[in-house]
């Protein structure tokens, strides 16, 4: 990774407008990724929690269905974090000792 502040002497730092366009490109890209990620998580929560909490759809969402949904949403996010932590730890471990693969 080249220095963010462009202090390297071997290459002339990009023209200011190019540097800001580069930054804009990266920011937009990251935002798009974050949005895709959030949408995917939202869709999954919807699907899983609807399946768990709204077993017999009635004329409206009942109070107990609503509280189930909000608990389910919290639990799904928590599950995502547990899976994420476990998966990343494992990937890092395998990388250190690749003979397992």
């Amino acid at each position: 990774m080249s220095s963010f502040f462009g202090s390297s002497s071997s290459t002339p730092s990009p023209a200011p407008d190019m540097a800001s366009r580069r930054q804009a490109f990266m920011d937009t890209y990251r935002q798009e990724m974050a949005l895709t990620n959030a949408q995917e998580l939202m869709n999954k929560c919807n699907e899983k929690c609807f399946a768990k909490c709204v077993t017999k759809p009635g004329g409206s969402l009942s109070g107990s269905e609503q509280s189930c949904l909000s608990n389910c949403l919290q639990r799904y996010m928590e599950a995502f974090n547990i899976v994420s932590k476990t998966y990343i730890a494992r990937v890092q471990k395998e990388r250190i000792s690749p003979e397992l693969a």
Binding site: N37, E40, K44, K52, Q74, A79, F80, Y87, V91
Partner: peptide, 22 residues
């Protein structure tokens, strides 16, 4: 990596979460 985590979460949620969400 993120896509794999989404898919694992979905699969493991179905396998592991049997109680009603509280």
């Amino acid at each position: 990596l993120t896509a794999q985590i989404h898919s694992l979460t979905s699969m493991c949620w179905d396998k592991c979460i049997t109680s009603n969400p509280s």
